[in-house]
Design a protein around this nucleic acid. Structure first.
Lengths: 143, 143
DNA sequence: TCAGATTACTTGTTAATTGCAAGTGAAAAT
DNA sequence: ATTTTCACTTGCAATTAACAAGTAATCTGA
């Protein structure tokens, strides 16, 4: 019986491969985008996002991202049904990756949201700083 | 400058989504890495790369990347069996994306290739310039 | 010159993943 | 008390990935 390569084992330790194995699918980076740039924090917000992720895939991705320490989950103190998902520092550190991907698309593909691109192009470091600042303000445990 | 939209329908025009739809899988960025950083140019080189891509998937990805204008294919004038795959300008413009992904892994995950990371950290712009320079030298139609 | 090797694939089959629809149980709102 | 909201789960079909094997064109060495 030939055994298939187990999924939980890395194909290689190449740093690019490691990030591809963690983030290289059709949804993970979009969830991170929604948290980072749109301030989404709840399951239903992600579900209602424009690209229409399926609910089972969303649940799997959230668990995976939490398992990698990219997002953190806590209960909403004001509503027992709700969970609050936030980016960790590790998740926030993906901001430069997302930013470069946006710039690449802006340079080479048809796209929307010219305002976002204008903002990034005007001053990339300032954009990254403002994204991080908003995260610091909004991810405080008490709010 | 924005260019044509590929035939299949996009989930959204969000610039991050566009790049995820083009590059968000388990192999595309690894092929681009092999071309960009290791100077790979042939089918058999990609096949022999450490992560062991399956041959049918490699063939599909090369066609997809060529369709998006990220790579270009030409015949080897010295060997009628061989095709030479090279990155286009659009493909080379993914260097900052790959670089940021490598830096993120270096900061947050177990990995290998400390020399690459040292080089990037020492001077990111210089690293990007040297990658581009090698591409300019090696992608000339006559060689 | 011709057998064997190399190259860039294709084809067939199985395994895994994704996507869709519907359902669940706890908590909140009315 | 009933309905609605919320964060999921389950079942199943469709799509995609992975593995093994094969093929045609070309090159290489005796």
């Amino acid at each position: 019986m030939p055994r298939r390569r187990p999924r939980n084992q890395l194909r290689s330790g190449c740093p690019l491969n490691v990030s591809v194995e963690i983030l290289g699918d059709r949804w993970s980076l979009l969830i991170i985008r929604d948290m980072m740039l749109r301030g989404f924090r709840s399951y239903s917000q992600f579900l209602d996002s424009y690209e229409r992720i399926a609910t089972n895939i969303l649940a799997h991705r959230l668990k995976k991202l939490e398992g990698y320490g990219i997002i953190a989950t806590r209960q909403d103190p004001l509503d027992g049904r709700k969970l609050i998902y936030t980016l960790t520092e590790k998740g926030m550190d993906l901001a430069p990756v997302l930013t470069e991907m946006v710039l690449w698309t802006a340079a080479h593909e048809e796209h929307q949201n010219p305002e976002l691109i204008r903002q990034i192009k005007k001053d990339k470091q300032k954009f990254l700083a403002s994204v991080r600042q908003r995260w610091l303000e909004n991810s405080s445990p008490v709010d």
